[in-house]
Design a protein around this nucleic acid. Structure first.
Length: 571
DNA sequence: GCCGTTTTCGGCCCGACTGTTTTCAGTCG
């Protein structure tokens, strides 16, 4: 039972209660509980099994703690099953359509007997929705658009695509004279691995002209809203972009508000309230008087807090940490001194050894580990013992010619189904850097997967576990293992965990990163480069590391080449 | 349903935009 499954039960309960028009605060409790469990790095099943009390988790009281126990043992809970009997099974799906909330869904069901997305589509297409009270032709059109979007986008946009869109939008907006300042906000600014939409804050000398300019952006397919305060559009790619107009004196408060997360904002607002203040997107107010708002620093300061980096604003303890003066000094891109996961054309990389080295040097790195695949990865023409030895000789020979740069002879060796490594340990022991990864048999049951990873970690020849969860965002689920046991084995054997920067992976995920750090593990921010341009993906890995509360000292490849050499010395 | 440095009961974050209405409900973030 995964945390996401427990969270899903609570979210489903909340959905049904909403359609039923239940007490909104009760509904919020279920939503909060879903988030609380979903954000937990430890598995809730293990947490409970270890005898810890779910009531210690934020937003979990006696009732929800009982339901967690019930869900863990039965996969569902009585409350959900009883609620389900009161509605058609697919009715809550309608809530996913943008523009449809619980009240409209209820009306569609009551008045038109619509119980599924398919029925909604045919009713809207047939023009039957416009006759309902409170709905008109526009509503009907928006439902059809919402359905189309739902079918097309299938979820959120990856960070890489979002970054590319943001850069392109910035280039367009820089040419508009009426715009004085533009800053990204939302989950994009918090560097989440996927974003729902892109948010920008705009200071304009003339809002009407600025809006005209924005809407001339060539990739806009559909204008969703245009008001005094905001312009909202959908791009041809399906991504929604919101632009909010703000004034100088409210910019900081607005930036905080639109950066979120929502949960973080609520914590700050409650805190303001306690001091007799009011915090909204226009500023921090005492009565009618705005006491802060121009910059984020000013607002945080007026709340008695230091500035909190956006990556931490998830209501995962950052406000408390800020209050105690214990915010981490987050790692920066510039702290990275080398890359420890790179492929060449010896296996499935696109570039030669020499090209990869030149690219690493051009980025100011002091070292690079060549980690081609081992033989089990046949599709990548993985290396056997003899081929690897030959490559290592070549790597070392070339490395000796390089001044002030350490070229590590390494490998990305497969962890086989039984936990053995894909190459003889004596060959692996000759290398400077051994990254071990799972690429096959990803469906193993949890206990066997845990044993498999622990066996590899305890081999004594492995430095790092590559992309530990093996997930591909939006495409393939994570492999299942007990993180606490695996982390404990890493701690015992001095093995690092990789934060793979590849945008599809971003693995170790942020919450596990935070947990691994608490356990005292060292992470490696690597790119898994398959071509020279991939070396720049490290930016995304840094985003994950920062979201995982990591400091420079928690990441191995912030060490200088000489310090790393000492650290990696084979016994 | 949760929670408590005024409270174990009575609160629970806050505002904009749309579409449908003639003053507002629903939705969104």
């Amino acid at each position: 039972m995964e945390n996401s499954q427990v969270a899903a039960v609570f979210d489903q309960i909340a959905d049904i209660l909403e359609i039923q028009g239940e007490n909104p605060f009760r509904i919020r409790s279920y939503r909060n509980a879903a988030r609380s469990v979903g954000d937990l790095s430890e598995r809730i099943a293990d947490y409970v099994a270890a005898g810890k009390d779910p009531e210690d988790l934020p937003g979990i009281g006696e009732s929800l703690a009982g339901k967690i126990g019930e869900i863990l043992s039965t996969g569902t809970c009585r409350t959900l099953e009883d609620l389900r009997k009161k509605l058609p099974p697919h009715l809550p799906d309608l809530l996913k359509v943008k523009g449809l909330g619980p009240r409209k869904v209820k009306a569609l069901w009551d008045k038109l007997n619509i119980t599924s997305l398919a029925e909604l589509k045919s009713a809207a297409a047939a023009g039957r929705i416009r006759d309902l009270e409170g709905m008109g032709e526009k509503t009907e059109q928006n439902i059809l658009k919402g359905l189309a979007t739902l079918e097309a986008e299938a979820g959120r946009t990856g960070i890489r695509q979002a970054t590319e869109h943001a850069a392109s939008i910035r280039r367009h907006l820089e040419g508009i004279k009426a715009i004085r300042r533009l800053e990204p906000a939302g989950s994009f600014r918090r560097r989440r691995e996927t974003v729902g939409d892109l948010d920008f804050l705009v200071i304009a000398s003339d809002r009407a002209k600025a809006a005209d300019g924005i809407l001339r952006y060539e990739s806009i397919e559909d204008v969703l809203a245009r008001g005094e305060e905001k312009v909202s559009a959908r791009l041809a790619s399906g991504v929604q972009v919101d632009f909010r107009f703000v004034e100088d004196e409210e910019f900081g408060a607005a930036w905080m508000y639109f950066t979120g997360s929502k949960a973080h904002n609520i914590v700050l607002r409650k805190r303001a309230q306690k001091d007799g203040l009011k915090l909204n997107e226009y500023g921090l107010f005492r009565g009618e008087e705005r006491i802060a708002g121009r910059s984020e620093e000013e607002v945080f300061k007026a709340l008695g807090l230091p500035w909190i980096p956006p990556e931490l604003r998830e209501d995962r303890g950052e406000v408390d940490a800020a209050e105690r003066g214990q915010l981490p000094q987050l790692i920066e891109r510039e702290d990275i001194r080398g890359d420890l996961h790179a492929h060449t054309n010896a296996t499935d990389g696109a570039n030669t050894l020499e090209e990869m080295v030149a690219a690493a040097q051009a980025r100011g790195y002091e070292y690079l580990a060549i980690t081609d695949h081992s033989k089990a990865v046949t599709v990548a023409r993985g290396l056997n013992e003899a081929a690897l030895r030959k490559q290592a000789d070549r790597v070392r020979a070339y490395g000796e010619k390089l001044k002030g740069f350490w070229l590590l002879a390494g490998v990305e060796v497969d962890i086989l189904k039984d936990g053995k490594l894909d190459l003889q340990e004596k060959v692996l022991a000759e290398l400077d850097w051994v990254c071990a990864s799972v690429h096959s048999a990803m469906e193993l049951p949890e206990d066997r997967m845990t044993q498999r990873l622990v066996a590899a970690i305890r081999s004594g020849v492995v430095h790092c576990i590559g992309h530990p969860f093996g997930r591909l965002i939006g495409k393939r689920d994570a492999i299942r293992f007990d993180p606490e046991k695996v982390f404990a084995a890493c701690k015992e054997s001095g093995v690092c965990l990789e934060i793979n920067s590849y945008p599809d992976r971003l693995d170790l995920p942020d919450v596990h990163c935070k947990r691994a750090c608490e356990v005292g593990l060292t992470m490696v921010v690597s790119t898994d480069s398959h071509k020279i341009a991939d070396l720049d993906l490290v930016e995304y890995g840094i985003g994950v590391a920062r979201r995982g509360w990591l400091e420079k000292k928690d990441v191995l490849n912030t060490l200088s080449a000489s310090a790393l050499r000492k650290r990696l010395k084979r016994k």
